[in-house]
């Protein structure tokens, strides 16, 4: 499986890009002498015009490169944690619905459908707006709007695994239902969940940046979306202030998508063969 993944050029590019972003995020304090909030030079300094400030300064004279590095922390953190929370909601719900069927399924799926029909970005805005923007509320809001696809996926997987004969065999062995679900069924649904999770981190990063762009970011955290939002009004004169954070988002999200696709091909060889046939 690892070999299949490694031979996928796109996925390896994705891994390298993501590694670079992670390293920059971790070592941001070492790489940049001044904090992203600190004024270091005159405002609106274009990129490459002064040593030590490769990407110039923003509307308040702060170092754009340093802001980018610190922004990576927020993006990755929010992306990762919100995905984990979404999995914590979606996996159990989908598993129970798919395994027990009947009224449990009916109820759980109505609930999921309800959340899925709501325009998720609009719901995220409402949630963050009402609960005061903090990193925690943003993360929670993103998790709340992104768990429904997980629940649906897990339900579908569990339903298909449940029909297989080894589950009947486990029932005949006298194993209890919860034990069959946890020990026999769920391990067989892990691969698609991993694939989906990697793609969800990417979506979460996009969502977080969109919220920050609208001014719904945590005022105490530097984030890419905030940078773009703040620079929006000066786009005619200082385009680079919007441009570079956008590129950072594209690179990170692209890397995650590439990894997700690579994982998908590696974990579901049947489908990937079709893709290349």
């Amino acid at each position: 499986m690892w070999n299949r993944f490694r031979s996928n050029i796109g996925a390896m590019v994705g891994v390298l890009l993501l590694l670079a972003v992670i390293l920059i995020a971790i070592f941001a304090p070492l790489l940049f002498a001044h904090s992203p909030w600190q004024m270091v030079q005159r405002p609106f300094l274009p990129p490459f015009s002064m040593d030590g400030l490769p990407l110039g300064t923003d509307t308040l004279g702060r170092d754009v490169a340093s802001q980018l590095a610190y922004g990576a922390r927020v993006s990755l953190l929010v992306g990762l944690v919100s995905t984990l929370v979404a999995l914590l909601i979606g996996v159990p719900l989908g598993a129970l619905a798919g395994f027990y069927g009947g009224y449990v399924d009916e109820g759980a799926m109505r609930f999921t459908e309800f959340f899925q029909t709501i325009p998720n970005f609009a719901l995220a805005i409402v949630l963050v707006a009402i609960f005061e923007p903090t990193l925690a509320s943003i993360t929670l809001a993103i998790a709340i709007v992104s768990w429904p696809p997980v629940a649906r996926l897990v339900r579908a997987e569990v339903m298909s695994v449940r029909k297989r004969e080894f589950v009947d065999a486990a029932t005949l062995a006298g194993l209890s239902k919860p034990r069959i679900l946890v020990r026999q069924v769920l391990p067989n649904t892990v691969s698609p969940i991993i694939v989906m999770a990697s793609l969800m981190v990417a979506t979460a990063i996009l969502l977080e940046s969109s919220l920050s762009f609208l001014g719904l970011g945590d005022p105490n955290a530097m984030s890419w979306g905030y940078m773009i939002g703040a620079a929006r009004t000066v786009i005619r004169s200082s385009w680079w202030l919007s441009f570079f954070p956008g590129i950072a988002i594209v690179i990170t999200v692209l890397a995650l998508n590439l990894i997700g696709e690579g994982l998908n091909d590696a974990l579901n060889p049947h489908l990937s063969r079709k893709g290349k046939a």
């Binding site: 297989r164 004969e165 080894f166 005949l172 006298g174």
Partner: peptide
Amino acid sequence: LRKQRHKVQMVFQDPYASLNPRQ
């Protein structure tokens, strides 16, 4: 029933679906 399950056992049709691939 769970306690009496062992009395009747089954051999299934599909050799590929009747064993858990991860066990």
